[in-house]
């Protein structure tokens, strides 16, 4: 593999509006936190270079999506070619936890993933910095239920769960390292598939945009 570029990994973060997706991203990418984020419209793009344990250099291309349901029809343009999907909820908002299932389903429908049973998801519960009194009552139990429910169709996979605070920088880096590893694994599978089809693209984005997007107008 001569002139090898860093591996590009495409990651999507989904979840209800206001659970802190943008804050998580900013904490991870720039290690900062602000109260001043505006609501994300459509999706924002972020990039972060990482070196994994095995000295492997990767670049994460992250799409930070808008949480409002109305924007879900946009998914097609952003989800395609993803290597990993983060499902995000707010530990103080039970509805955002319950909605994870529909976020996952929506993602699988729109991303047109070839191996949905094997596709890596990761669950992040954000805002653990807030008072316990404000958190969802018996959170662990409910969380377990949801996670089991999410994995019900998966090939014996368990989806990793992280509880984070973007505000206090708790667990964010750790979560994204796992994201990167999972994405890399997925990308290698994709690559293998792509090579089988004697397709020599090595850019995850290009593969899918070029091959599937044309002809819509």
């Amino acid at each position: 593999m001569s002139g090898k570029k860093k591996t590009l990994l495409k990651v999507i973060i989904l979840g209800d509006s206001g659970v802190g997706k943008t804050s998580l991203m900013q904490r991870f990418v720039d290690d900062k936190f602000s109260q001043q984020y505006k609501a994300t419209i459509g999706a924002d793009f972020l990039r972060k270079d990482l070196t994994l344990d095995n000295n492997k250099q990767v670049t994460l291309q992250i799409w930070d999506t808008a949480g409002q349901e109305r924007f879900q029809s946009l998914g097609v343009a952003f989800y395609r070619g993803a290597d990993c999907c983060i499902l995000c909820f707010d530990v103080t908002n039970e509805k955002s936890l319950n909605n994870l299932t529909s976020w996952k389903d929506e993602f699988l429908v729109q991303s047109n993933i070839s191996n949905p049973q094997d596709f890596p998801f990761i669950i992040i519960g954000n805002k653990i910095d807030v008072d316990d009194s404000k958190k969802i009552p018996s959170l662990q139990k409910k969380l377990n239920n949801i996670v089991n429910q999410l994995a019900v169709n998966a090939n014996g996979l368990t989806y990793p769960v992280f509880e984070t605070s973007a505000k206090d920088a708790i667990n964010v880096q750790a979560a994204f390292e796992v994201v990167a590893k999972m994405a890399l694994q997925q990308e290698e599978i994709n690559d293998a598939n792509a090579n089988d089809a004697s397709d020599d693209y090595n850019d995850a984005i290009n593969i899918h945009l070029e091959s599937e997007q044309r002809g819509c107008c």
Binding site: I41, G42, A43, F45, L74, A77, F78, D203, I205, N206, L209, E210, Q213
Partner: peptide, 11 residues
């Protein structure tokens, strides 16, 4: 470059 307008112009 594989840029789609929807990726930036939606907003």
């Amino acid at each position: 470059e594989g840029i789609e307008y929807i990726q930036f112009a939606f907003r």
